[in-house]
């Protein structure tokens, strides 16, 4: 089985985000970039599938720090690693890169494309369904367990309120991973150093093919967060305010 796994580099969630001067993007100069957590799980699931039944895993990474994360992927067991070129200092739109991923899936004769179910920059839609639709392959998002039996896949999906649904589908397919069957493994510094010799392939992007798109006019920081509102020290007025705050969020009842 050939597995293509997509790794997207996104701004570190621990960092403070600030707006760029144009007001339409975030200031990326001082940001640390890290692998999208869901993509990390997708990589782990790919390696677990490889260990369970044999597979060739190709990891394709996009964004700042792609090389570093590809070395990590190689250290964890990816057989081939490819960096997909992208526009510098721009957010990674899953809608934009879907055509490139689909083209690569065909070029690598992939039987399975794995990626994280979401990324914090996929405001224009999620990668798995885009790639699935472009390839006309079945796709399932929110996977937290994948078992391959030949070309037949059993995928368990997390739904709200703890409901879990298991599906059966035949490869080729695209899966959006929520959680790997096991937590992503740790790769030691010595293994990373070893993997730093792995050659990294390059791929140039394909045009998205989706002409009509929405545009970001402006970004803003939410009003709340950090400097919270002080409701004061009178229990009765605080209780009144909290009831109305909870009611506004639809949470004033069970």
């Amino acid at each position: 089985m050939n597995i293509l796994v997509v790794l997207r580099m996104i701004p570190d969630s621990a960092g403070e985000l600030q707006l760029a001067e144009d007001g339409r993007s975030i200031d990326r100069e001082w940001l640390d970039f890290q692998l999208n957590d869901f993509d990390d799980h997708a990589l782990e699931e790919a390696i677990l599938l490889k260990e369970a039944g044999g597979a060739k895993v190709t990891a394709v990474a996009v964004g700042e720090g792609a090389n570093r994360v590809l070395q990590m992927a190689a250290a964890r067991g990816a057989d081939e690693v490819v960096a997909l070129q992208c526009e510098e200092d721009a957010m990674i739109s899953s809608r934009e890169i879907a055509a490139s991923i689909a083209a690569m899936a065909r070029a690598k004769s992939a039987d399975l494309v794995l990626c994280g179910v979401q990324s914090s920059e996929d405001v224009f839609g999620q990668l798995a369904p885009y790639v699935g639709a472009l390839l006309d392959w079945p796709h399932v998002s929110g996977a937290n367990r994948i078992v391959a039996n030949g070309a037949v896949l059993r995928v368990t999906q997390e739904r709200g309120a703890g409901v879990a649904v298991t599906y059966e589908l035949a490869a080729p397919a695209v899966l959006g991973v929520q959680t790997a069957s096991k937590a992503p493994r740790y790769v030691s510094g010595s293994k990373l150093r070893e993997a730093s010799k792995t050659p990294i392939g390059r791929a140039t992007p394909e045009p998205s093919g989706l002409e009509r798109a929405a545009d970001i006019i402006t970004l803003r920081l939410p009003v709340q967060g950090g400097s919270g509102e002080n409701l004061g020290g009178n229990a009765e007025t605080v209780a009144d305010r909290l009831v109305s705050i909870l009611a506004a969020k639809g949470m004033a009842r069970n």
């Binding site: 030691s188 510094g189 010595s190 293994k191 990373l192 150093r193």
Partner: peptide, 8 residues
Amino acid sequence: GEEGLFET
């Protein structure tokens, strides 16, 4: 026990 990371 993380000798590689220590070295880095």
